[in-house]
Structures are given as C-alpha cells and as structure tokens.
C-alpha cells in the first residue's frame, strides 16, 4: 500500500539512512522509529540521504520534525544530504533546515561528522 522503504548503512558511530519513495503517510514513521532505535543504542550521529526520495508532504515533514526534536533531546547530530531543490525548499520554508546540517553529498556529511569526533 505504501511506496516507502528505507535502507541503512551503519559504520562505527554514524548511521546513514536512505528513505526511498514517497514520504507521505504514516509508513514514514518507520524513519523516526529507526532514528529512535539508534539514539537509544547511544549513537548520536545520523545522516539522512534523500537521493532516492520522490515526494514529501506535510506528514513526511511532521515525521522529520520529530526526528529533529529527538536529535536535540539526545544532543545528537543530524545531517541531510543529496536533497532535490524542491525538498530543500520545503524544509527551508518549514524552518527544519535551521536545525540540521545540510550537505550536498553524503561523503561531505560523513567527513563533517568524522571531524567533530
């Protein structure tokens, strides 16, 4: 029913999450639960690579808002990468990008997170 999936790449103290498809219904909550699980394990650095994300709506934005909030609660680092302009515009408009680090490429985010130790 929903056209959403996620794939994960975990390495040392960073996890890269790649949402795929449409982040437009409650199925997107899996993204939030995945982040929560890593925070609960003590991991604090999360990269979300949006290169395979097709569409995001207010429900998807709500889920990302939750992730931003939880990252702050856990004093973690959240990076968004490989965003299409249309998605970046939505996140900027909603004020989400003020609370995350946005990078053009995934490797840039990983390099940034490596530097902060």
């Amino acid at each position: 029913m929903n056209n959403f999936s996620i794939s994960l790449k975990a390495a040392k103290d960073v996890v890269v999450i790649m949402p795929r498809g449409y982040v437009n219904d409650l199925g997107a909550e899996r993204l939030e639960h995945t982040c929560e699980q890593y925070f609960d394990k003590g991991l604090k650095k999360i990269v979300i690579n949006f290169s395979d994300m097709q569409h995001i709506n207010s429900i998807g934005a709500s889920v990302l808002t939750d992730i931003v909030q939880k990252t702050a609660e856990h004093r973690g680092y959240l990076c968004f990468t490989n965003m299409k302009k249309v998605h970046l515009d939505v996140f900027e408009m909603l004020g989400i990008t003020k609370h995350v680090r946005v990078f053009k490429e995934e490797k840039d985010a990983l390099s940034f997170l490596k530097d902060i130790g």
Partner: peptide, 19 residues
C-alpha cells in the same frame, strides 16, 4: 484513530510542531 493520527501529522507538518 488512524484517521486522527494522520490528520494530526498533517497539522504538525504544516507548522513544524514536534509535539
């Protein structure tokens, strides 16, 4: 329940409200 949960997400997504 599901309907209201989804609509709550719509509202909070529109106005960037985490809680």
């Amino acid at each position: 329940n599901e309907k209201m949960k989804t609509t709550l997400h719509v509202v909070t997504g529109m106005f960037s409200v985490p809680r």
